[in-house]
Computed example of a mutant assay.
Amino acid sequence: MKNYRVFFRSVCAGLLLISLSSGAEELSGKVVRILDGDTVELVTVPANVLAYEPPVRVRLNGIDAPEKKQAYGQRSKQYLADLIGGKSVTVSFTKHDRYQRLLGDIVLKECKPECHTLDVNAAMVNAGMAWAYRYHNEATRPKMASLEATARSSKQGLWQESNPVEPWKWRREHH
């Protein structure tokens, strides 16, 4: 049975990699686990497959949340859990990160009683629960940098702290 699961996961991963080569893709599923403020697992159920499908790990694109042991790490994780835990979401993605997680933008659409769509990645930054992700000290997404600046100036979430430590600096010191 264990060999079957390994084989099935390999086949699924291979099919996913093939689909990634054609540009932006989407998948829908139910969020079954929140690992931290910028990483979740979801289960998709393709209509034509009647077999166990392992959870897909998704890293929220364009943001960097505090680590779990860092100040605001647990609050960030809980905020994300409150937003999408156990809910059906859609993920748009183009690639994997170096840990083989899908790097995606998560959208939640709910109709209770009125329909609305939530950009989850942006909501995390807007609430001060994550930073805009930076590469060589430059935000990779201008929208996230703008939301971070607004959250910072209004002292939302982690910006209530006098000197919050960026997750990438915290990781360097603690790993």
Score class of each variant (00 low, 15 high):
M144H: 14
T39K: 07
V32A: 05
I18Q: 00
V56L: 11
F8Y: 04
K155T: 02
D64N: 15
H174T: 12
G29F: 05
G37I: 07
K143I: 04
H175T: 03
S92R: 00
V58D: 00
L20D: 01
P54F: 12
W168C: 05
R172G: 05
V49Q: 09
V45M: 09
K169M: 06
T140D: 07
L50F: 09
R33W: 04
Q160M: 10
V107P: 01
K69P: 07
N121D: 03
G37N: 10
H136G: 07
T90D: 10
W170P: 02
A130S: 10
D38R: 10
R152Q: 09
D38H: 09
W159G: 01
Q100D: 13
V107M: 12
P113C: 08
V45G: 04
D97A: 14
A145G: 11
K69Y: 14
A47R: 08
D119S: 13
M124V: 11
V107L: 14
A127D: 04
C111R: 00
A145K: 02
Y72P: 00
P66A: 06
V107D: 10
A51R: 00
H96K: 13
P164S: 05
T44L: 06
S153Q: 12
Y79E: 13
V6E: 10
L15R: 02
L16S: 04
Y72H: 02
V43R: 14
P46V: 08
M129L: 11
L103R: 05
F93R: 13
E26H: 08
D105S: 03
L42W: 03
L15G: 03
R57I: 12
S92V: 00
E41K: 13
V89N: 06
G128N: 10
A51M: 11
R57A: 15
S22I: 01
G85C: 08
E166S: 03
T90W: 02
H96A: 12
T94A: 15
R59M: 13
W168M: 01
H96R: 14
P54E: 14
